[in-house]
Each structure stands twice: as structure tokens, then as C-alpha cells.
Simulated scan of single mutants.
Amino acid sequence: MGWNELNITTQYPLMKYIHNGDYVYFVHSFMAYPSDDELIAYCEYGQEKITAVVAKDNVMGCQFHPEKSGAIGKKILLAFKEMVQ
């Protein structure tokens, strides 16, 4: 829980305004275990890689809360809006 930096593994339209090292805000401790081809970004907590963004086909998910992630979260929401227009 708290702020952590993203490590982007795959270029994906949802992340077009986001860079490695940008910080986002996690509010809970749940975690998804996607396959490597579905993993878009992760964060590290100690030695643990925590799934941050996943996507498959037209389904996307963020483990963190974009609406609580300040300017970076706003950029993710903007990219999503552009994808669905």
C-alpha cells in the first residue's frame, strides 16, 4: 500500500503518456497473477514483483488507483478516454 514506481514491460495504448519510474498510488494489498503476455507494468516491493497494469484483448486493469495517483493517474485516464472515443 502507498506510492510506488511503475516498471513498464510492454508498450500499450493505455500507458502512452506514462514512463518507467512514474509513481502511482496503491490502496490495498490484493494482487493478480497474469501471464507474461498480459502484464503491462509492475512495481517492486522488496524482492516481490507486484502486478500494476494488465491487458488482454479489450479488457484492461490497474492494480493501483488512477484516481488517487495525481497527474500520472490523470494521464492514464486520458489515454483510456482516447482509446474508447
Rank of each mutant, 00 (worst) to 15 (best):
Q85K: 13
D57S: 06
T51F: 05
K75P: 03
I50D: 05
K81H: 13
G2L: 14
Y25A: 05
G61R: 02
K68H: 14
G61L: 01
V54A: 00
K49H: 06
Y23V: 04
T51S: 07
W3F: 13
Q47W: 09
M83T: 03
F30H: 08
A55S: 15
A79P: 06
T9K: 09
V59Y: 15
V27L: 15
V27E: 12
K81M: 09
Y33H: 13
M1C: 11
Q47M: 12
K49F: 01
E5N: 09
L78C: 04
Q11E: 15
Y42M: 05
W3K: 11
L77S: 01
T10N: 03
Y33M: 07
L77M: 09
M15A: 04
K74H: 11
V27Q: 10
Y33G: 05
L6I: 10
D22H: 00
L77P: 02
V84Q: 08
Q47R: 13
M60L: 08
G61K: 02
V59T: 14
I50W: 09
G61A: 08
M31I: 06
A55N: 11
Y17S: 02
G70N: 12
W3M: 07
D36S: 14
M15L: 15
A71I: 13
I40N: 08
L6F: 11
Y42H: 10
Y12C: 08
S35E: 09
E5K: 08
V24G: 03
L77R: 01
F30D: 08
E38N: 06
